[in-house]
Design a protein around this nucleic acid. Structure first.
Lengths: 209, 209
DNA sequence: TTTGTTTTGTTGCAAATGCAACAGCGTTTA
DNA sequence: TAAACGCTGTTGCATTTGCAACAAAACAAA
């Protein structure tokens, strides 16, 4: 995660936030952000804590669309997440900054810290695009096997090793790959039987490569 | 598509491009960009023409990863597209601008046109994230039927009508949804039989909503 | 026009997948 | 401690899906 205020001194940051008319909110564990706070037309920056964007579909099924950790951004109007069917829950006590869109997109501001801030945001959005591209590359694979292998490859490149560590549970992996967990479990068994991979808890060894 | 130079006068634009040490290239139809031009560590902006990012997998299968129209951006380092397995082909005579990353991420620049330019880039990257989110929302649907319906809904929201027009062929739609074309065709037939939709060439009427 | 190319619709079939259900296990909570 | 909860592995089964193949239609080019 990239700090949106990196390369900005603490004093400049305070000054900048004043200029942008930013406001800071605290949320207790297990509270909904949207029920108490208007975040439309604002950019939200997570300063600390842990939140989740949760989508409820017409059946009432809830899906975790995204995990928000420190320095995560979200914004309805800037569309870092999607619809109106979403809610945001603080899963841990969290502190977030709200900045109005119009304050951000204000070319008349000329301070170096503002320019640096915009460049930081540009770097972050660029990184998010990379992550989305990666996921799309995986999701467009047609079989469960190919989704898994594509995911393993991405992780191996990222972790620069043919031994990779899952950053989350197998249940979450199935969610990420948008496949049935039990079907995934079955396919992983096949990959193990064919000696293509070895699995020990969340440690996965790739025997090709 | 958003013009990366919007709200910048022609004179300021020329001045800005000089400051950023931008270079302009022309490509003939059916030529490969990467074979003649080093684009690593640069941002590429399509000024005019039509190009495609083409991925060749280990089987030799070629996939069109992305179409690049006027004002499209692409960049290996900034990761608007993915891997090294990609090539970029001009499908029509095309003109592109290359700007070195370091020139863009230069907080010491203070001219209003530079600030406007990076704000424009930020707006574009934000829009790209929105598009990627939309596609991911569709790709994470488990059945062909749900992928189609999710896609139709997105289009209906976008076109603000329950009558939507496909922006491309059904063959391309199957690619976009990452499903088999014949299986998609079968499912569309079912949707028609169940009177959920009507289809006339690329015009689709949604009978719910 | 004629020819060639791309798109579309269809079908049979084997294989892949989702779903439901259950059990074992470890961790957390009351 | 006991109960509750979440994660994992497994299995049977109905359904969905991909694949291959072919013909008709639409479109583009010569």
């Amino acid at each position: 995660m990239i700090d949106p205020f990196k390369k900005i001194t603490e004093n400049d940051k305070i000054e900048l936030l004043k200029t942008l008319e930013a406001s800071i909110y605290d949320f207790d564990k297990n509270t909904s952000i949207l029920s108490t706070t208007k975040i439309n037309d604002s950019l939200c920056i997570v300063l600390e804590g842990y939140l989740q964007i949760i989508k409820t579909d017409y059946n009432g099924n809830k899906t975790i669309v995204e995990d928000l950790l420190q320095y995560s951004l979200f914004s309805p109007s800037l569309s870092f997440f999607n619809d109106d069917e979403c809610d945001i829950m603080a899963k841990e006590p969290s502190k977030i900054i709200l900045i109005d869109d119009h304050a951000i997109f204000n070319p008349s501001l000329t301070s170096p810290s503002y320019t640096q801030f915009i460049l930081n945001l540009l770097e972050i959005t660029t990184l998010i695009i990379k992550q989305r591209n990666t996921r799309i590359n995986i999701l467009t694979q047609k079989s469960i096997r190919n989704k898994l292998l594509e995911y393993f490859n991405q992780m191996a490149n990222q972790q620069r090793s043919r031994i990779i560590y899952l950053p989350f549970s197998f249940t979450d992996l199935a969610d990420y790959l948008a496949i049935d967990r039990s079907a995934m479990s079955r396919e992983i068994k096949h990959l193990k039987e064919e000696k293509i991979i070895d699995v020990k808890a969340r440690k996965i060894m790739l025997n090709y490569r």
